[in-house]
Design a protein around this nucleic acid. Sequence first.
RNA 1: GGUCCCAUCGUCUAGUGGCCUAGGACAAUACCCUCUCAAGGUAUAGGCACGGGUUCGAAUCCCGUUGGGACUGCCA
Length: 483
Amino acid sequence: MVGPRVRFAPSPTGYFHVGSARSALFNWFVARQSPDGFFILRIEDTDADRNREEWVDGIVSAMTWLGLDLDAGPFRQSDNFPAHVAATEALLAHGYLYYCDCTGDQVTERKGENKTPGYDGFCRDRGLARSERTALRFATPREGLTVVPDLIRGQVEFQNALIDDFVVAKSSGVVLYALANVTDDRNDRITHVIRGEEHLPNAPKQMLLWSALNDVSKQEVPLPLYAHLPLLVNEQRKKLSKRKDPVATESYRDEGYLPEAFVNYLALLGWSPRGDEEIVDRQLLIDQFRLEDVSHSPAFFDVKKLRSFNGEYIRRLSSEQFLEAVGPWVEPRDGQWQPTDRTPPWREEQFNRDLFVRVAPLVQERIALLGEAPGMVSFFFLDTPDFVEGDFDKSLRNDPVAQALLGVAIERFGEIEWRSDVLHETTVALGEAMGLNLRKAQAPIRCAVTGALIGPPLFESLEILGRDRTLTRLREALARCSA
RNA sequence: GGUCCCAUCGUCUAGUGGCCUAGGACAAUACCCUCUCAAGGUAUAGGCACGGGUUCGAAUCCCGUUGGGACUGCCA
């Protein structure tokens, strides 16, 4: 018994589409749930227009980030060109293919008059010879039914008569997707073709091609099983668009999503684990995943839920793991992966690792994205905090009582023991003396020291910041009020 | 237009003829906790597109309607 052999076959683009990521993931699940499962990455780069070296690297690194390890590859479809040509020649010799010199305009022109969809088979019996302007078309059977065995949708029927004679090789000789893909899948002995639903209309064509290839090669390679995954859509219920929707997996990584959270969320798009718990580990995903259980309807990629998952995953990290994970955002290092366009707001020499280690736990439970960490701790490292003007006006500039409180705080903070609990008590007392509850009393201090009214717990922060820097900031804030 | 796919809370889904006065998660709302913000806790609101069948019984099966989507390239 041979285990499932699956492949992820993206066409190279400048980024790794989240829909591709999900397809890759579901393929990987199928491969990993059998001891002898086999997962291949094949870059479908036959279209010369979109074929760049770095794009392949992008796909590989995104998959590595997601932890989708390969058993073979990455392979390039273009490397198999000789096999594709051999396939067309064999098919041509056995009458499965014919040359056509119709231009796109001519095909369109004849469309109205014909009941056949797409190309009308005009050249099928013209006996054209090869030339630099003839494409090769597949002579689709005029009758019969092709039934796609789809693990998700069941038996999907297509009338052969309604499938047009599609182009298999361009006049330039380049073999197109439909055939190249089938040729490679046969060579790789692929058992399950798992891909997006947009490929469902291709399936009958490819099955026809597969059978034809079996015939001409006298080699009976078993047809694969298909699984067409529901599309990922936007709030308009349209297929995720690269122009309007945030679809680049890399940008999610840059924002600080954890790969485990991303994988967990992706798995839930069109599928769900047993029971009421949605946050589950990778092994459980692998163990429980079944193509047969994948839903049939399109799924909206909900960044809000993804974000919530990510926050949960961040909170579940140990302190050490968290420190390791936020590293790239707070302390980027050469030779290590760094998020693009996300350098910390402080200069490298201003960063203090020991200090960060102390505040990290306070940050860990407050952020949903690793990329939010720098903004939350920048006041520790900047000489002057980055003031949110609205907060400053509200809590200090327009509030004489608050300014008075700051004045008293400067005195008292100079003489007490520098510990968060003492700072806490002192602030309570300070506030009481002026008729303010702690909620009110801490606000001006917080804003003076951190620059904003929201942030990590104040008294722990002050303890970590230190007495000198705290007092300096309180004085500067007071001065700033009259500036 | 043609072919094909799809249809449970706003969103992702559980549900495969009786366990459903439809469960969970995210989002929302309220309250509790609280030095801000989060986190956490509790609670509330919110759905089987519609119409016919089949059946003792339908969210679940069948048909139709409506609605949405994909494909329709010498792209993949």
